[in-house]
Design a protein around this nucleic acid. Sequence first.
DNA 1: TATGTACCGTACCGTACGGTACGCTTGCGA
DNA 2: TCGCAAGCGTACCGTACGGTACGGTACATA
Lengths: 227, 227
Amino acid sequence: MNNSALHTQIESPGGVAGEPVLRDARDRRLLILQVATRLFLEEGYGAATTNALVTRVGGSKSTIYSHFGSKEKLFGAVVDHVLAQLKAATEGYDPPGGDLEDCLVDLGVKLQAIVLSDDHIALARMVIGEAHRFPEIGGIYHEHGPAMAQQGVVDFLLAHDAMPGSSLEDIRDAAEWFTGRLIHRAFIRALCGPGSDADPQEPGRIAQDAARTFVQRFTGPGRGVAA
Amino acid sequence: MNNSALHTQIESPGGVAGEPVLRDARDRRLLILQVATRLFLEEGYGAATTNALVTRVGGSKSTIYSHFGSKEKLFGAVVDHVLAQLKAATEGYDPPGGDLEDCLVDLGVKLQAIVLSDDHIALARMVIGEAHRFPEIGGIYHEHGPAMAQQGVVDFLLAHDAMPGSSLEDIRDAAEWFTGRLIHRAFIRALCGPGSDADPQEPGRIAQDAARTFVQRFTGPGRGVAA
DNA sequence: TATGTACCGTACCGTACGGTACGCTTGCGA
DNA sequence: TCGCAAGCGTACCGTACGGTACGGTACATA
């Protein structure tokens, strides 16, 4: 699962060439944030050293500490930054024409691509691993990540009037069925390690299964609470 | 979600009383392992200090290093230990009588209790957070945790002949639907932070929804692949 | 030309960590 | 009684980290 949709990295100065390239640039802060984001995502919070950041971004540690007051605050800014990128990747989603099942397949594939993207997995690992030291950041991630995705599915179902006559609670439950089926297994596996991505067709297969079964179960005749 | 089913802690010496209680005990190693387990689960890998372990377990750091060669190896032993406890908690599961739906509700409630237990959440956080540094341990956890749970549901469905005539692949897919619905949302939420456990009836409600919907969709007439 | 601001570079501080060395004590078995 | 394995306590080592200090530099504005 290799996804580069979220990469907006800028060339970092100070790498090979000793001469600073962006000297006195107004967006020094943004550059630091972007490089720090890549560093944190690659190394994790604990292993990402401020000295390593200085090496990558070029310049001086003092500048970094003048923009962000501490490593913890920088971490918070990085999480916000990645969440904003993830949100941007979801905006402007335009479901294709066709019947509900086709739309659900499309939505499912897109959702999987974002949730299972390298950047999101790295972010989730980091946030989960540090949830205990930074509970607030864990809450922010959950609110703007998983909870947002869940709400996105609910909105989709409402916009398509996929379950006419159903209560909002039923629609929420249906959305949980859908996302659980779509994501759960692959997400947990990805969080646990690189995993053997032996079958590149698996995401599509699961999206189709999720969509088909969803339509059969939650829409059309015979749905609703039995007994 | 407060679950103490996994706690088998032994009273640690050296806490208040200065006199060592288990001096020269043969099971010094086990005691260290148990205390280390609690320490790691409470503090996380990075924040769990070997000095803190010495303070809690009593005795000397040399002893710890003579039993386990390094902090990393101790970590591996702790993960194995917790996984063994989790496995022990699932063994001897005896589904109640009654129809399939009742059995599924019971299975669902038990599964939730284990997966969402404090110890398992703490373990999962730790493993996920360090999956990058210890990919092997991530694999071990996944194999003996999530994958095992998944297989347990498959075995349950097979033992109850819940989906007669279905292929093994269909049964696996059905088990993924069930576990995804059961666990996904609450598990992710728990991983992200303490969360507001406002509704203690939620697990039961979800287990019932999962069981009822599962029976409607995957068993009885009208199931199977459409079109 | 004077001044303020942002940044650079480097040296440094205090601390905390994982891990080791070493001499002492205790209790068991021959 | 002796030796030996296991454990104890403490001091210590090397290192790496987050964070700070400080003098110097470039540039924009007035």
